[in-house]
């Protein structure tokens, strides 16, 4: 790929606006004190911001609710089946390294074996522009998961905030093409720029408040299967599902046929949560009857099953959202700490 470049902070808007001429550009923006992803044009670009939106950008590839099929049985025999498509071109700017990594994990799940039609359509039309984290949040532990605070992969372009300008690295052909659209907005990065980015990365790495010994935790997890800790840690769970809904790698969904006309329905798929009892409920029995088994499933899925199935990388990005979103403070770093110290 091409050399590292820089762009003046004030010119980032010009860059993104140019891109928005033929696609939707999504940016993080602060509204009423809430950091949200939003469309460029309807919201303003922040000069700088800390943290990540509480709902991860995975929803641009795997929406909270999505229409997949429409059925019309007006003609009983020749039932009309329509498949929804979504090939909207999109650039998402400001994706944190944890979330870039999350999308990489989703790629492994959705684009292997049976290729998921809907995910693939959105994925191939999405350009991901990362933004490195100079300042981790209280709940962040991406450093322990080796997904951040600076991205080393899984981006088309990645930006580092150097104060009045961004350092820009290109990671793919699609990223290169985007940057090449208005080359005059970018300048060659100097050694000083690169050095400053390196210092920022180092400083960021030093400022994490949480640390998890992932290797030891992973190693000890199988032994913890029957441990009392699962019941203890899950006893106050109020079954909100928030840990799953905000997780950048949770991919589970449910399917529901929703009536939309006298003889017509829409097949929806929508986010589901393995922390809910109904997730595994069958006609007569439930294969995960208690909350301890459900919490264990969430942690094992991220730390054991996903790496076993897909190339060894854990399915947790250390983004800390499940900690922040939990009304009763169930804390994955605390749980892993307990496991690691066994």
């Amino acid at each position: 790929m091409s050399a590292t470049r820089i762009i003046d902070k004030k010119k980032l808007a010009d860059f993104l606006e140019t891109l928005s001429s033929d696609c939707e550009v999504i940016i993080p923006t602060v509204e009423d004190g809430n950091l949200l992803f939003s469309e460029l044009g309807s919201s303003k670009l922040e000069d700088s911001f800390k943290g990540r939106p509480i709902v991860s950008p995975k929803e641009y590839l795997f929406p909270q609710k999505e229409k997949i099929l429409a059925f019309d049985t007006t003609d009983k025999v020749n039932v009309d089946i329509k498949a929804y498509t979504n090939d909207k071109k999109r650039v998402i700017w400001g994706i944190r390294p944890c979330d870039l990594h999350g999308i990489k994990t989703l790629d492994a799940i959705y684009l292997s074996d049976f290729v998921d039609t809907y995910y693939q359509a959105r994925r191939k039309n999405t350009i991901m522009m990362g933004l490195n984290c100079n300042e981790p949040c209280e709940t962040c532990f991406c450093n322990s998961c080796q997904t951040g605070p600076f991205a080393s992969e899984a981006y088309d372009v990645v930006f580092t905030d150097l104060g009045d300008k961004y350092l820009v690295k290109v990671g793919s052909d699609a990223g290169q093409e985007a940057v090449d659209k208005i080359p005059n907005l970018f300048a060659e990065a100097t050694n000083d720029d690169e050095k400053k980015a390196g210092e920022l990365e180092e400083k960021s790495k030093q400022s994490f408040q949480r640390k998890v010994d992932v290797d030891v935790a992973k190693q000890n997890l199988p032994e913890s299967w029957d441990d009392a800790l699962w019941a203890e840690e899950s006893e106050m769970c109020i079954l909100c599902g928030g840990c799953n809904f905000t997780c950048p790698t949770c991919h589970c969904f449910n399917i529901e046929d929703v009536q939309c006309g006298e003889k017509a329905s829409i097949r929806m798929r929508y986010w589901d949560s393995c922390q809910l009892g109904g997730f595994t409920q069958m006609a007569a029995e439930n294969t995960r009857e208690n909350q301890a088994a459900r919490l264990r499933q969430r942690i094992f899925h991220k730390y054991i099953y996903t790496p076993d199935k897909y190339d060894g990388a854990i399915g947790c990005t250390g983004c800390g959202r499940c900690i922040e979103v939990c009304p009763v403070n169930i804390d994955i770093t605390h749980i892993l700490g307990r496991v690691a110290s066994k």
């Binding site: 449910n254 399917i255 798929r269 595994t280 094992f300 099953y305 076993d308």
Partner: peptide
């Protein structure tokens, strides 16, 4: 197991890997 997709995506029937 409870299943929705039959394709190894929806996650309901996951056991181990």
């Amino acid at each position: 197991r409870r299943m929705e997709c039959g394709l190894g995506k929806c996650g309901h029937c996951n056991i181990g890997e």
